[in-house]
Design a protein around this nucleic acid. Structure first.
Lengths: 343, 343
DNA sequence: TTGTATGCGTTATCAC
DNA sequence: GTGATAACGCATACAA
């Protein structure tokens, strides 16, 4: 942490000093280039003495190996591409955390992009990241354009599809069944005696997984010979405000409602806030159920009933499977219904 | 979107088919390699006829340019490294969104890493990303180890420090003054007549910026000849639960408190929930003030007073300055106090 | 307008 | 244990 010499007053952009290369280090250490390479990667054989010489030279020159060149010369790439629909939803940030944490321990680098839930944009981004010859591409969900699939197939790199297993996987899929989650949620509400059930959701056009949960939920109701009493599907991404407005809308229609299923916890939290503001008693007058079991909803005055989803675990597991060189497979990490105090 | 031929049943990992290169395309199109390169980058001159030939060959072979090779051959790298402290805090996800959105439009790729608020880990990550010879490195905050600074200086790439301007910038800093935000927050509470003010915060050891806000807040009180009535600093990252527990703790001490300043909105939301649970009237019995003006806190039954911070804008602006090749500078994007209904 | 040759900074394959 | 040398796939003069 000592820095005896004062830094030059140059802007980083100014100094055009050609960066130190392997060749410089070799010259400084008085050894061959391949020896430096071997020492630095701790690969092959060399004497302790040369090792010291090389390390001294590296230290003295402040050499940082150029991975661009390394990746080109060697066969395998240490890059992993991660493409998520959004970052405003904490769910994807969690997955990203899980992935990067597992990856950086093994010296891999994450290359990152956001699709905004647009399959066409996803295709463009896949093309862009594929140009970096990543060892693996991680995507969210199983729904992709034909072009995306084709490129992925042709690339020859591993493909990890996260957070969904309801469908055909390209290579490896890690997640859980949203359809089943919806179905079990319906069963849970019915079990508690609710019969006049409403749904408040966000745009299922773009978020395919919330659509699958909804379908599963309807199936769960149908199994008991029931239908939804009311439904309100907002034409916007999920948010607290949409959830709040959505519940207000449903209740304004006057039909008796005793439970509401929200497309996720952000929406459910909005509904919860509406009830607080309108002094609607929970769960006596209305029961609320969300999805994801976000930390925030566990600390509301009444914890909101939800479904815990293994998000960080999904990211971590996917990274591990890739690192292990695991064969193509589908990994079901499951989910857990969390009762809370709102049902 | 048509896919006439059925895909081979091979696992992506199986097919070792050597990928298509520029040379293959050149051969297929019956032109030279440089011609293909020029057409693909739309740089230099070529006839419309050869362009068509090249594009046809590219299409037919499904060629994807290798940017690794491209980056090595050309001088500049299209990679931008982004290193954030965490992703569980939506603030950094916002910044990341802003950055990537502005970047991808210009064909740049984001390389990404998370420090977990650990300066030593940040140093290691900076070393790791520098190996990819990025055109720029984006970091959060102005506090870094000497080693980090030295590497950054030596790298010769642009350095963008985000979300803070209280201190010495390496190259370009984009953000606002946390010290000033804290000071103005104190002034605002005093203006509303509050005098028995408590602070509930999270670990300032790691989150330097919350420490700066706290210092500014204390200064603001001192300017009016006041001191904090109570303070509770949790030894954990900010979260709703810590905020809730922190406020409970402060109130349990029995001293009269009429306003509480939280280190951020996550903490403030926890405090708000505590008040709801304990039927503490807001702002009559206690006023609450947070920081960041997160969307979620704008939709609670009573919107929580806070300070809006330009997070996405910070990311966007930083990316733009880099893209413009702007000179070293400090950009103050400011902040805005949002009254809400809790003060 | 187009093709050829050289180099980018490594890794890997050899001889030594 | 060590050091030349040939790839790696592309961009960039430069020549044609």
């Amino acid at each position: 942490m000592t820095c005896a010499e004062s830094e030059p007053a140059l802007t980083p952009a100014d100094q055009k000093s050609p960066l130190i290369t392997l060749t410089d280090v070799a010259a400084e250490a008085g050894v061959g280039e391949s020896t430096v390479s071997r020492v630095l990667r701790n690969h092959g054989s060399f004497s302790e003495k040369t090792r010291a010489k090389v390390m001294a030279a590296v230290e003295k020159l402040g050499y940082v190996p150029n991975k661009i060149a390394g990746a080109l010369a060697s066969t395998g790439s240490p890059l992993v591409a991660i493409i998520v629909p959004s970052l405003s939803n904490i769910v994807f940030a969690d997955v990203l955390s899980g992935v990067t944490k597992a990856l950086e321990a093994k010296g891999h680098q994450a290359v990152f992009a956001v699709t905004d839930y647009d399959p066409a944009k996803e295709e463009a981004l896949v093309a862009a990241v594929l140009a970096w010859r990543p060892a693996a591409v991680m995507l969210v969900g199983l729904e992709h354009t034909d072009g995306t699939r084709r490129m992925l197939h042709a690339s020859g790199c591993r493909v990890l599809e996260l957070l969904d297993i309801d469908g055909e996987a390209i290579d490896i899929a890690v997640g859980f069944s949203h359809h089943e989650a919806g179905r079990q949620t319906a069963a849970r509400l019915l079990e508690s005696g609710y019969r006049n059930i409403a749904y408040v959701g966000h745009d299922l056009k773009h978020d395919m997984r919330s659509g699958k949960r909804f379908a599963g939920f309807l199936e769960g109701l149908a199994n008991a010979g029931l239908e939804l009493a009311e439904q309100e599907i907002r034409d916007a991404p999920s948010s607290v405000s949409e959830g709040r407005a959505g519940l207000a809308d449903v209740l304004s229609r006057g039909r008796p409602i005793d439970a509401v299923y929200f497309s996720n916890d952000d929406m459910a939290l909005g509904g919860y806030f509406h009830c607080l503001a309108e002094r609607i008693s929970i769960p006596d007058q209305i029961a609320l159920m969300g999805f994801n079991a976000l930390d925030i909803c566990r600390h509301t005055p009444q914890p909101i009933a939800s479904v815990f989803t293994p998000r960080i675990e999904t990211g971590r597991r996917a990274a591990e499977l890739f690192l292990e060189g695991a064969p193509s497979q589908v990994v079901d990490l499951g989910f857990t219904i969390v009762a809370g105090a709102t049902i």
